[in-house]
């Protein structure tokens, strides 16, 4: 059963990653990268890394890809084929989400015996809660210093992005 899920997610990851490189329009490339990120999240669910799957969807698909799409729209690369009917993309994004929830629910029901306990967020809850708890404990004990350094990296990146993309006053008066 898990081999079927791996085959689907892995095949889709391979195909969509090739589409990212092959498609000419950067908007389509970014959207196929979005589909690929959802399927990588599915692979994480198979590998019992539910917290990372959630982070993958929220941070990668929610923040990074939106940033890409903003810049693609801002730079106005191709005006002619930028618009598209959106329901196909939405359908392709929905399929891995449905399969992920099926895997999560079946795994939670199988290990704890009844569904209500697996949905609770506690130390003795389902698999997802256990994974998040374990990662939190590891992150804030063993890897506490790298965690603080990561916050510094984010701060430096934020300042750098603002400084790089800032328009000078004289320049903005010319335009």
């Amino acid at each position: 059963m898990s081999l079927v899920f791996f085959g689907y997610f892995g095949g889709m990851v391979a195909i969509t990653s090739m589409l990212v490189v092959a498609l000419r329009n950067p908007v389509y490339s970014a959207l196929s990268l979005l589909v690929m990120l959802f399927h990588v999240a599915g692979l994480f669910v198979i590998l019992h890394a539910e917290f990372l799957a959630a982070v993958q969807v929220i941070v990668y698909a929610g923040a990074i890809l939106v940033l890409y799409l903003f810049v693609v729209m801002l730079l106005n690369v191709k005006e002619d084929d930028r618009y598209h009917s959106q329901w196909r993309i939405a359908a392709v994004v929905c399929v891995p989400l449905v399969i992920e929830s099926i895997v999560l629910l079946s795994g939670g029901a199988g290990s704890t015996g009844h569904d209500s306990r697996s949905l609770e967020s506690g130390p003795h809850g389902g698999i997802a809660a256990d994974n998040t708890l374990a990662i939190g404990k590891t992150l804030f004990t063993t890897y506490l210093f790298p965690f603080e350094v990561a916050s510094l990296v984010l701060l430096v990146a934020m300042i750098g992005a603002i400084v790089l993309a800032k328009r000078d006053f004289s320049e903005s008066r010319e335009l």
Binding site: I64, L67, Y68, A150, V153, A157, A161
Partner: peptide, 11 residues
């Protein structure tokens, strides 16, 4: 690091 890279790269 990927988020930082994207922010600086897009800037």
């Amino acid at each position: 690091v990927a988020a930082a890279e994207v922010a600086v790269g897009l800037a």
